[in-house]
Design a binder for these strands. Structure first.
Lengths: 209, 209
DNA sequence: TCCAATATCCCCCCTTTGGGTTATGGAATA
DNA sequence: TATTCCATAACCCAAAGGGGGGATATTGGA
């Protein structure tokens, strides 16, 4: 696996960047740039025959956005690893790109060696990212301190999130529907909400369940 | 900043690991291990006076779990960076640890140089992780293809997730409540759910909104 | 040109939910 | 020991939600 040549495709509208990346890749042992495209549309017509191992993908493309392109490629060929090339380190598109299926996220100013490392790393099952991006991603997991729910309340809330009605919850927990209502009233107070859907939304977003 | 010595605290129940890490850190320029603890309880009694820059934290501790410890430390002193040391690369606790506030996640078998790098990296705003872990984290963002909702339906669903009632949605979109009902019926069909809370839960989990 | 999808609206009927109030026994804690 | 918190339970009432019909207008393709 490590000995094999990694086939890379570049999708990038800036011709200079495209060519210098392509040159860099072809000049390095173990890498081959098998194709380059200035936009997603033209790339999508060909890459499913070419089947590169890794795609270096710009986000700010003319026509179809890189995000859309990633979605389509990953849906059709999930084995292709996609590494995003972005201009800014602190990019609002990071999460969109990862949600769409990108496995890595680099800034264009990254040194050539970093880019080659990233290609190798993504091929080995890693997720190459700049340090700032990694911290953003990790930071997105952090949950803010939430109001304290009792054990029973948490239990009830979790069943609410499963879509159960008061009656179903009552049966499941072997308590009366009235008690379920009581717990839910208390939950609403603590979460400062006034309906099931608000409670469910808050519970899921704040990972209360 | 870069010139300053990074103060490190180690929380780790295995004495051998604890001491060898401590030795490693103290033997390296730019690092100082200011304290070590075999469990969270004893650490929590002291670290808020010692104020280390970085804590290397084991997860599988006797008594209070590392996850709990991270929560408490980050709640009280968010500036302290916490890097988790775990035994297995493919650890089920990764997400719990990151949600609790950890900024990095390493395996204990990592080479000494990697550990020192990680401490430096986390101090520079990065999120040091092994490649497998990084891929897990990034992978958790990917959304699976979802049933197609029309633009109007997505709009209505998003307002449902905000906790709005049929009536409020109708007013907001300048349509009748009946039309809102109709859209919601169609949404339920497509999502295969039978209540607002189920729809909201599904929408948020699958990032439909 | 006609069909399918979409967005809009209306009806009926019954269940579920949300907010208010009150009460009791047990456990924890101050 | 006294007090507070928790889980349990009941009642009332008005509003909201959910499932079943059916109807009309627009739009964009096949």
């Amino acid at each position: 696996m490590i000995d094999e040549i990694i086939a890379v495709t570049i999708i990038e509208d800036d011709e200079e960047i495209r060519q210098s990346l392509s040159y860099l890749i072809n000049a390095t042992d173990g890498f081959e740039c098998i194709s380059t495209y200035p936009d997603c549309e033209s790339a999508l017509r060909k890459i499913f025959e070419e089947l590169p191992d890794v795609i270096l993908m710009d986000i700010g493309l003319p026509g179809m956005s890189g995000i859309e392109g990633i979605k389509i490629i990953k849906q059709k060929k999930p084995v292709i690893d996609i590494v995003v090339l972005s201009i800014h380190e602190n990019d609002e598109y990071v999460f969109d790109a990862l949600c769409a299926g990108a496995s890595g996220y680099l800034i264009k100013e990254a040194q050539p060696a970093k880019i080659l490392d990233a290609i190798k790393e993504v091929r080995n099952g890693g997720a190459p990212m700049s340090t700032q991006i990694a911290r953003m991603v990790v930071g997105s997991f952090k949950v803010q301190p939430s109001p304290h729910l009792t054990q029973r309340e948490t239990e009830v809330l979790s069943k609410l999130c499963d879509g159960m009605s008061y009656k179903m919850i009552a049966d499941k927990l072997f308590i009366s529907e009235e008690t379920v209502r009581r717990h839910i009233k208390n939950i609403y107070k603590k979460l400062e909400v006034h309906s099931k859907s608000e409670a469910v939304a808050k519970a899921i977003k704040q990972k209360l369940v």
